[in-house]
Amino acid sequence: MSLPKPVMRGMLAKRLRFHLPIAFALSLGAAIAFKYAVTEPRKRAYAEFYKTYDSVKEFNAMREAGIFESVRPSGE
């Protein structure tokens, strides 16, 4: 009893017809999941932060702490 010969002709095309749509669907699903699980919450967090952010107040706090070398604190 011998084993049948494997079918090699057209094997790549047959496997691609099966696996390519699956790979495309999974990658699309991963991209959508990343968009709604990571980027949308991040955009909301940035928007919420910048609603109350005062850049002048932050600059003055850093100036008073002595972070900037070219800007003297207002007390001098």
Rank of each mutant, 00 (worst) to 15 (best):
T52F: 06
F24P: 00
L20I: 03
A23W: 12
N60W: 01
R44G: 10
R15N: 10
K43E: 14
S2P: 01
H19L: 13
A61M: 12
G10N: 07
R63A: 00
M8P: 00
Y36S: 13
F18C: 08
A31C: 14
F49K: 15
S27H: 14
V7S: 10
G29Q: 06
R63H: 02
M62L: 14
M11S: 13
Y46E: 15
V56E: 07
L20S: 04
M1E: 15
E69R: 13
R9M: 05
K5M: 15
L3C: 03
L3S: 11
V56M: 09
E64Q: 05
A23N: 10
F68A: 05
E64L: 08
P73T: 00
A45T: 03
R44T: 08
V71R: 00
K51W: 03
R17T: 07
A31Q: 09
S70R: 14
R17L: 06
G66M: 01
R72Q: 08
R72N: 01
V38F: 08
F68R: 05
S27K: 14
S27N: 15
K35G: 09
M1G: 09
F59M: 04
E69Y: 12
A23Y: 07
A30E: 04
T39W: 10
S70Y: 07
F49G: 01
Y36R: 06
M62I: 02
E64M: 07
T52C: 07
G75A: 13
A45Q: 02
S74C: 07
K43D: 15
P21S: 03
A30T: 01
V7F: 06
A65H: 09
S74D: 07
M1I: 12
R44K: 12
L12M: 14
H19Y: 13
I22E: 10
A61T: 07
A13I: 07
V56D: 08
F49Q: 15
H19A: 10
F68V: 01
P6F: 04
K57Y: 08
K35Y: 13
Y36W: 14
A25Y: 01
Y50V: 08
K51I: 04
L16C: 11
I22D: 01
F24Y: 09
P41M: 08
R44P: 01
A33I: 06
A30G: 06
P4T: 01
L20R: 08
R9H: 12
L26H: 05
P4Q: 05
N60P: 00
G75D: 01
E76T: 02
A25H: 05
I67F: 11
P6H: 04
I67P: 00
R17D: 11
L12G: 02
S55I: 02
P41F: 02
M8F: 14
R17N: 10
A37S: 14
R44A: 09
K5H: 10
E48H: 03
R44Y: 11
R72C: 03
A30Q: 04
R9F: 12
V71N: 01
G66C: 05
M11G: 05
Y50F: 15
A25L: 06
S55T: 06
L20A: 13
K57T: 04
S2Y: 12
K35Q: 15
D54S: 13
L3Y: 11
K57W: 05
V7C: 07
P6N: 05
F34Q: 11
V71H: 02
